[in-house]
């Protein structure tokens, strides 16, 4: 774990706490975003946290970055921080210098078609494409899968949003010029799906942190029958369930990114993703039940988190994708599931 972590997390959380009001998150509904917060991120070079030092970054690690993603989820910050930094992380992975222009990334889709350096095809649900200059995505040429970089000026862009009003645009490319391409091995592709998944898990864990906190706070403030509602045992049960899901989600995130950092992430990234899918449902249900009517309105901020959870759980490499992958991994394995869970390997005798 990097020593910078605590300091960076503290600085960024302070920025988000001060600058991201309810109205800031609501900007998305009016087809705007928090450009001032993004400027602060750029000025403080927070977007460079995981970029290697030789590429002008701070040389942080995955853990630093994913903890920042958790904060983006926790404050529902309407900026393309995850997309831009993840795009750059992936570019460094294939030895391309990171972009300074705003970039986005989209991997969980049918790849575009690449022919003689030109790209064609369509992509749906591309995050933040309308505001970004560069896109990192996949394309195939004669059966070979490559990671490509393309200028978004080459795309016809149609604006769409996800359940939480976050930009998720449709792109159409016709013989678009690509800026770079790099063939991917199966292994590399798998690693990238894990990076993308860990990023989503981080955001989800953050939104869960907040939905839980809001519920505890509300149960203390709201009074019915002459007492705060947390005095009722059935409300307490919701709080206990929320606390449990929050703790489990946090532990799932921490354990999976620790393994990713060590280069030992196997099925665990998928496990975290499957668990967070469940946790999202349970947390959204209980948080709304605690908040009752005010929670299902735009006036209260709970929906910033529950709508994101509902949107994110179906984005990127989602539950259905990972269940299938896990089943494939296990079908002909001689390892039992206990071997998998305990990461049985040939340990050198010492």
């Amino acid at each position: 774990m990097s020593e910078m972590k605590d300091m960076i997390i503290e600085v960024v959380e302070r920025i988000f706490k001060e600058k991201v009001e309810k109205e800031t998150v609501d900007l998305l509904e009016a087809n705007q975003w928090a450009e001032d917060v993004w400027q602060l991120i750029l000025e403080n070079e927070i977007h460079q946290v995981a970029v290697k030092e030789e590429n002008g970054g701070a040389g942080g690690d995955y853990e630093d970055l994913f903890h920042l993603y958790r904060l983006v989820g926790k404050y529902a910050v309407p900026i393309p921080f995850v997309e831009h930094t993840l795009a750059n992380l992936i570019l460094e992975f294939i030895n391309i210098n990171p972009h300074t222009e705003l970039s986005t990334v989209h991997l969980a889709a049918k790849p575009l078609e690449l022919t003689a350096g030109k790209v064609s095809g369509s992509l749906d649900h591309v995050p933040w494409a309308r505001y970004a200059q560069k896109l990192v995505t996949l394309a195939t040429e004669k059966g070979t899968q490559s990671l490509i970089v393309v200028d978004l000026k080459e795309a016809h862009i149609e604006n769409h949003t996800n359940l939480a009003a976050e930009p998720r645009d449709s792109l159409q490319f016709t013989d678009g010029k690509i800026l770079a391409s790099h063939p991917l091995t199966e292994e590399q592709h798998e690693f990238l799906t894990k990076l993308q998944t860990a990023a989503t898990v981080s955001k989800m864990a953050g939104a869960i942190d907040r939905a839980y906190e809001l519920s505890v706070q509300f149960s203390k403030e709201r009074e019915q029958f002459g007492r705060p509602i947390h005095r009722f045992q059935l409300v307490q049960q919701h709080l206990a369930v929320l606390a449990g899901e929050q703790a489990i989600s946090a532990a799932a995130l921490e354990n999976s990114i620790a393994l990713l950092q060590k280069g030992e992430a196997g099925d665990e990234i998928a496990f975290a993703r499957l668990k967070l899918d469940d946790a999202s449902r349970i947390v959204a249900t209980s948080a709304h039940q605690v908040h009752a009517a005010i929670g299902v309105t735009h006036e209260h901020r709970l929906h910033h988190y529950t709508r994101r959870l509902w949107a994110w759980r179906d984005e990127d490499f989602h539950e259905k994708y990972w269940k299938k992958q896990l089943a494939k991994n296990w079908l002909n394995s001689s390892n039992t599931i206990w071997d998998v869970l305990t990461k049985k390997k040939q340990v050198e005798h010492i």
Binding site: D267, F271, A272, L274, K275, A327, I337, L341
Partner: peptide, 10 residues
């Protein structure tokens, strides 16, 4: 696999 994921988390 959902059960396995849950067990891993717990």
């Amino acid at each position: 696999s959902k059960l396995v994921a849950e067990l891993w988390s717990l």
